[in-house]
Design a protein around this nucleic acid. Structure first.
Lengths: 229, 229
DNA sequence: GCAAAAGTGTTTTGTCTACACCCATGA
DNA sequence: TCATGGGTGTAGACAAAACACTTTTGC
């Protein structure tokens, strides 16, 4: 298949590893699995897999994400390439790290059992194989940058949510408390929220109005960017 | 070397391609070479090379950059991974694109002859092999983001420069004219410039003061970030 | 009636923008 | 003395930050 000049070059194993973020209403969490092969078998790790020679790198990431979560159309983005020679003691493996955002409730208990996976809050991560802790750290920084210029963070919330849940999400991502009035004013001024005629009465007697995203406006902002924090 | 579980996975050719930016005082330019192997031999391309199995991906990029420019310690950053199966008609090759910033005068004419390379303004690029035009487009966007939050762009200027040269650089990167007074005020307020007791008298009778960067402040800003445009 | 969260405005501060004239110099 | 680019200040608009009380409701 390869033509002459490519023939004597080194071929290398290429993997993808996925940092999957979720939000439980209070903490930002990452989905980890117990690694199922050596080296590092049984240690916590990001979900990953090797890129096959007949699939694109992005498709490999989608495949891995789908295998773990059962979901398609996951919000996903290339993060970085980890390419040190000795990063994986099992051999020369280059890894592309991806970060992905999902609604934590979309991830069922069955899958947690099936894949031996678990959500960990970002401030209480267990020991991880290889350079996976670096990847998560980078992903968190990237997520902060991302949500400050794009509405992507919303992907972490359920379809309908209250303003306080949205604020809690931003506070968790930025790791800083925000002023309720300023936050409300700012987020509403973006005109991407639609106020519903429903209240969620779970967390207060009075009940808080639910909102959902206006998809049109959302898409415009996703392209053009915004200035959030 | 690879242990059991890695053994039957696909190995893939991995390349690096470098978008090298320069600034001639007026236009932002990219350094291109005539590709020296098939497929696409003789067509313009980014400088690139294959990653060897005994070097890190970043080291491969450094090697390629050094080979082309003779320079070490080049400002360089991972851009993205181009991973489509069919992107290179010569075979399955995954490419990591890097973007690099150099001072255009550091690149000598000898090297241009030796490598058959040439600077092209970004708004007048020739036809390029494969997906290299996409890479450059992405790199330009990334450069815009980068200089709006980091002082990296300064790497494109000579050690000593006038405020007008600096402004011209930002105008070239952002592709928009900037107000001279506002620009001056803002850039000086960052406290990263040291005014020298020298003038450059090449482009005006009066002569414009030269500045250079205060490396300490520069490094702080590089880490902490800044808000530019 | 009280506990608990929801909802709502104003003032102050700082930052961004728009805009035009005098200065120094070499020819 | 004039042509050329260098250097400088201010006012108005807008956005960000700080800050606290009233409302609703289930118990």
């Amino acid at each position: 298949m390869s033509i002459q000049q490519y023939k004597f070059r080194d071929k290398i194993l290429v993997a993808v590893d996925c940092i999957i973020f979720g939000f439980d209403g209070l903490h930002l969490k990452a989905l980890l699995v117990k690694r199922d092969l050596d080296p590092g078998k049984g240690i916590n790790a990001l979900m990953g897999g090797f890129v096959n020679s007949n699939e694109s790198v992005n498709d490999a990431a989608k495949r891995v994400l789908n295998k773990l979560t059962g979901l398609t159309d996951i919000y996903m983005e290339q993060l970085t390439c980890l390419g040190d020679v000795e990063r994986d003691p099992g051999g020369r493996v280059i890894s592309m790290a991806y970060f992905a955002l999902i609604k934590i409730d979309d991830y069922s208990n069955n899958l947690m059992i099936e894949h031996n996976s678990k959500w960990y809050p970002l401030d209480a991560l267990p020991k991880l194989v290889f350079d996976h802790a670096d990847m998560i750290k980078l992903a968190k920084e990237r997520l902060q940058e991302k949500v400050s210029t794009h509405p992507s963070g919303f992907t972490l919330l359920p379809q309908k949510f209250t303003l306080q849940q949205l604020q809690a999400l931003y506070e968790a991502i930025y790791e800083t408390p925000l002023d309720k009035r300023n936050f409300t004013r700012k987020i509403l001024s973006l005109n991407i929220l639609k106020k519903l005629n429903e209240k969620e009465t779970f967390s207060s007697r009075k009940g808080a109005f639910l909102y959902e995203f206006d998809k049109k406006k959302y898409k415009i902002l996703e392209k053009e960017g915004l200035k959030f924090l």
